[in-house]
Design a protein around this nucleic acid. Sequence first.
DNA 1: TAGATTGTTAATCGATTAACAATC
DNA 2: TAGATTGTTAATCGATTAACAATC
Lengths: 215, 215
Amino acid sequence: MTKQEVSPSVIRRLPRYYRFLGDLNAQGKERVSSNELSQALGLTASQIRQDLNCFGGFGQQGYGYHVAALRTEIGKILGVEHRRRAIVIGMGNLGRAIANHVSFQNCGCELIGLFDSNPFVAGRDLEGMPIHHTDTLDGFCHMEHPELAVLCLPEDAAPAIAQRLRTLGIRAFWNFSHADLHLDNTACAVENVYLDDSLLTLAYGLSHLGTEDRP
Amino acid sequence: MTKQEVSPSVIRRLPRYYRFLGDLNAQGKERVSSNELSQALGLTASQIRQDLNCFGGFGQQGYGYHVAALRTEIGKILGVEHRRRAIVIGMGNLGRAIANHVSFQNCGCELIGLFDSNPFVAGRDLEGMPIHHTDTLDGFCHMEHPELAVLCLPEDAAPAIAQRLRTLGIRAFWNFSHADLHLDNTACAVENVYLDDSLLTLAYGLSHLGTEDRP
DNA sequence: TAGATTGTTAATCGATTAACAATC
DNA sequence: TAGATTGTTAATCGATTAACAATC
């Protein structure tokens, strides 16, 4: 579908475009120019046009972009219409929050299983969804064929589970543990969310406010 | 403290260095070379030396880096020894998970208050910590002077609260809402964690696996 | 000393911005 | 048509990588 090879920096901006176009659409706005988008999103108009043109000419000279149409196109690129089957491993605070709070639907995913290795947690449920024991992962995966796993387990447990899930056919990992997943050669997609790192970065920013604000 | 102006890309790598050096230290390793670090972290040795030399010459030619000493130095740069007073606004699933799960201590922060605008939530507590009503924010801030706010509230509520907190002296925002905080001119540090965007990016990656793995 | 590995400068690469002709 | 705004090429900027002299 993609022409050449789109750089990750571009891909990372697509969800923001998609979200903002959704807002505009909800407001009933019909057309938007790269200049308006750039103001709202804090980017340059040039960059936005450059980004969009990685995927095709969605605009029209002299007019701009049709909000609803552009949103649909970006949605297609991101694959929001998919129903990628996802499971969550680790039902601690974070796992529960992710399972409840993240709108998997809106992201082209469908949550089909929750797992925990603690026998006191497995067997219970979360908002009506049963929590399985991690021992049952193999059977579950053979039956249900999930494609994406959300890792909400302790740092030391994560790499081994990831490897195991890899052999069970899972090719995408949303990793909230601190572990650096080393899935080597094997072709999979990994997205790390290192919350502590993010907070540390913010704390650094706070310490250096005087120095760094200049715009 | 910083010499010139260190680029955000460099800062974002520091927490990873810090964390990995902690691991090495725990393993009793005394020295490490930029080459070893690069292998473990998937970077180039050059980049690691370049990064570290933004802050000073922590290494020794022919030897490498002293693990414990380097860790301490990076910790100082990140400010892990601070006790930045932090509050969480919004005690839904996500707010509760963040409050419980993130180690504020390790990140140079201290959690001193929880807030929610729902009167049925305010008045309760989380792991022994009382949840206040957001109406009491002004008084609380004047008394306790928090410096950092974690925003776990709905998209539409976030910008207004952020503005208000700004006037109450808070200069750092860890934003989990989808809102693009526009804190304009005012000098503050913002770190956005857009979970849905992250999942969308991963889903995109999953769709394009065939195309993009090449290394 | 000889070997290793840093600190640092120079070269490369990629991403962002600017400019402008194409065109609606 | 004239005005606006895109698509796209060229210029700039910054970040990563390579190379090597300094030095432990």
